[in-house]
Amino acid sequence: MTRLALALATVSLIAACGADGDPVKPTANLNVGVSTGGVHAGGSVGVRKGPWNLSLGRIF
Rank of each mutant, 00 (worst) to 15 (best):
V11I: 10
G38R: 07
L13C: 12
L56D: 03
G50R: 02
P26T: 11
T10K: 01
T10D: 00
A7S: 12
N29T: 12
G57H: 12
F60Y: 07
T36A: 13
L6Y: 09
G57W: 06
N31C: 02
G37P: 06
G46M: 10
L4R: 13
G42I: 04
V34R: 09
T2D: 15
P23Y: 05
V45G: 13
M1W: 08
L8H: 02
T2F: 12
N29S: 11
R48N: 05
G57K: 06
W52R: 07
V24E: 08
A15V: 14
G42W: 09
L54A: 15
K49C: 09
L30N: 00
V39N: 03
T10Q: 02
T27D: 00
L13N: 00
V32K: 01
R58M: 15
A9C: 09
G42Y: 10
G38V: 12
P51G: 10
L13M: 05
L30G: 03
T2A: 15
R3S: 15
D20K: 06
S44H: 01
N53W: 03
S35W: 04
I59W: 07
A9N: 09
V39E: 01
G21Q: 11
V32M: 01
L4F: 12
K25G: 01
W52I: 03
T10S: 02
G37W: 01
A15W: 13
S44K: 00
D20Q: 11
T10V: 05
G57Y: 09
L4H: 10
L8A: 11
K25I: 08
K25C: 06
C17N: 13
I14R: 11
L13F: 14
G21I: 13
V47W: 11
R58P: 04
A7T: 15
G18E: 06
R58W: 15
I14Q: 08
S35G: 04
V32H: 00
L6Q: 15
T27V: 01
V39L: 05
A28R: 10
A28H: 07
G33Q: 09
W52N: 04
A16I: 07
A7Y: 09
I14H: 03
G46V: 12
M1P: 12
V47E: 03
K49P: 05
H40W: 05
A9Y: 05
